[in-house]
């Protein structure tokens, strides 16, 4: 899995913290595997945004690969 998954549109704000999201390294876990990926993150509370194209694109591919589906 390539390490950088920043959406083109980074203009998102964390609502509870009112902070603009920043690129940040995040761990994604699945079936005992860990991936370090760069994603939009709230610098204050650490909330992570997973965009639709990532969830249904590379993320789904990797999930299915790990499942041997």
């Amino acid at each position: 899995m390539s390490l950088r998954f920043l959406p083109q549109d980074m203009n998102w704000i964390c609502r509870p913290c009112r902070e603009p999201l920043q690129p940040g390294m995040v761990e994604l876990h699945y079936m005992g595997n860990v991936f370090k990926v760069e994603l939009p993150v709230c610098p204050k509370c650490g909330a992570v945004l997973i965009a639709e194209e990532l969830a249904l694109g590379r993320m789904l591919e990797v999930e299915q690969l790990l499942e041997d589906k």
Partner: peptide, 14 residues
Amino acid sequence: CWSHRMTIGGGGES
């Protein structure tokens, strides 16, 4: 609406 099965672990500054 979309979904994923992976879970998001610890984050941090890049």
